[in-house]
């Protein structure tokens, strides 16, 4: 009988991931084709060495000035900024996964409780949480996976 309180029960075991030496273009291709927003980054032995989010790739093309303004509601049309800069496009071609990924990755052990997994995700503002056993990637759980598990567990308790 598996312990339904543990994340290992609810995670996806078939993890779309990428090798640390891959290029950003390869990572983007995987994200587009497999429809995933987070790619755990592993080495040859499947050790988790980092995590690549879609936002860190799209961020290369976003105009940097936007980060300097508290809000940009007043911009209705981005004009010349709509076309990505030539420098940004060229830079994106030269980057590899290891340049852009978050390292070390935030991950939990498969024995981690659901409540702890939820707080880790909230604290680090993550959409997906890689799960490891002895440092090796064994699964991934999205916010919905964990939230669903946590809520269904709670609903059972109430009834």
């Amino acid at each position: 009988m598996p312990n339904i309180q543990k994340i290992g029960t609810w995670m996806k075991r078939d993890v779309v991931h990428i090798h640390v030496s891959a290029s950003i273009r390869e990572a983007a291709t995987v994200m587009v084709e497999k429809k995933v927003g987070t790619l755990p980054v592993v080495d040859e032995t499947r050790m988790l060495v980092g995590c690549l989010s879609m936002g860190s790739i799209t961020g290369i093309f976003l105009p940097d000035v936007v980060s300097l303004l508290a809000d940009i509601d007043f911009v209705k049309d981005f004009g010349a900024l709509k076309t990505p800069l030539k420098e940004d496009l060229e830079r994106a071609e030269t980057l590899s996964v290891s340049d852009v990924m978050q390292a070390p990755a935030v991950a939990v052990d498969e024995g981690c409780s659901l409540l702890r997994a939820l707080t880790v995700m909230d604290n680090d503002n993550l959409r997906d949480l890689p799960v490891v056993r002895d440092g090796k990637l064994v699964g991934i759980a999205s916010r919905v996976d964990i939230g669903r598990a946590f809520l269904s567990d709670w609903l059972k308790t109430v009834s």
Binding site: D71, D73, F74, K76, D77, F78, G79, A80
Partner: peptide
Amino acid sequence: PSNVGALMAMDERAAVH
């Protein structure tokens, strides 16, 4: 300058919170 229309489309009133 290009996109003068984009400048004119900016809504300064939306900048006020």
